[in-house]
Design a protein around this nucleic acid. Structure first.
Ligand SMILES: [Mn+2]
Ligand SMILES: [Mn+2]
Ligand SMILES: [Zn+2]
Ligand SMILES: [Zn+2]
Lengths: 147, 147
DNA sequence: GTTAGACTTAGAACAATTCTAAGTCTATAA
DNA sequence: TTATAGACTTAGAATTGTTCTAAGTCTAAC
């Protein structure tokens, strides 16, 4: 249940991709570099913006292809909290999230491990894939006096 | 934690809407009739199809407006399990879901009440909105023999 | 009956994502 | 080395789900 996070050097990224059976093309290394530079939650749009912020160009299609590939290979995890936008989570380990409905910010929740306890039995002939817990929070209102 | 569900007659729907501060137009009554005829998880598209399956016409805009209104008024709840499609849940009470990643089917999980237990404290100056638990499941594979 | 505001509508617009079809690169094998 | 097959990338078109717009219709209050 290691929730510590250390950023990864460029050399190590190449190796990480290889280990996961991913051919480390320049685009993929660049994208992985962004994802794993910090523990963060990016949408595809943000990755696309970051990866192209200097000069070099990586196409939108490649950003989506690569993110999809990373998900398939278990390097990265998708989080669904709102309609019409997927977040890519560079922490692929099982964990949960606070979601600030005002700001849209996602924050990791460490090793909860609780949700599973009192779950009803799974439907027949099914097996567990994952358990996602989203705790929606909002900025506390200043007390409202009745008029 | 009443998880029993009884369908509602047309007269009662009108009243239900009124009670929630919603003017019961014919379109709204019709849509509510679909939503509350059974405990189910519809996407907007399905509601649109159902509401227009006889002859009468309700526009797509009205379907979206109405679903949005029902959500705002707490009659109905949105569930996000996949990118690019919102489910509208006619069970607005707090509860959780199994999501079959193969078939896309959503199933209610009764009164779990557990996830809250060991939650870390909320971030400063925030208050709880809701806790969503999605248990992703998949059809069990027949045992795979190594080749 | 009038009228103001609420409601509905068709269709355009939009945002996120996927697809297409054509190039480019890369890994391996002559 | 070079040839080649397949993997990869690309621009832009297409698709999907949803929201917006602007114009009409209904309704409730006077
Ligand atoms: Mn984002
Ligand atoms: Mn649906
Ligand atoms: Zn996370
Ligand atoms: Zn439900």
């Amino acid at each position: 249940m290691d929730m510590k996070f250390q950023p990864i050097g460029r050399e190590a990224i190449t190796e990480l991709l290889r280990v996961h059976g991913i051919t480390p093309t320049s685009q993929r290394v660049k994208i992985a570099g962004i994802l794993f530079a910090e523990r963060a939650h990016f949408c595809a749009e943000q990755v696309y913006a970051r990866v192209n912020e200097d000069d070099a160009e990586v196409s939108k299609a490649t950003v989506y292809n690569t993110l999809g590939l990373f998900v398939a290979k278990g390097l990265v995890r998708q989080v669904f909290v709102e309609p019409g936008k997927v977040f890519y989570d560079s922490n692929a380990h099982p964990h949960h999230h606070f979601y600030d409905t005002g700001s849209g910010e996602l924050t990791d929740i460490d090793a909860l491990g609780v949700a599973l306890h009192e779950l009803p039995p799974l439907p027949a002939d099914t097996e567990l894939d994952s358990v996602d817990v989203i705790v929606r929070i909002r900025q506390r209102q200043p007390k409202i006096r009745p008029a």
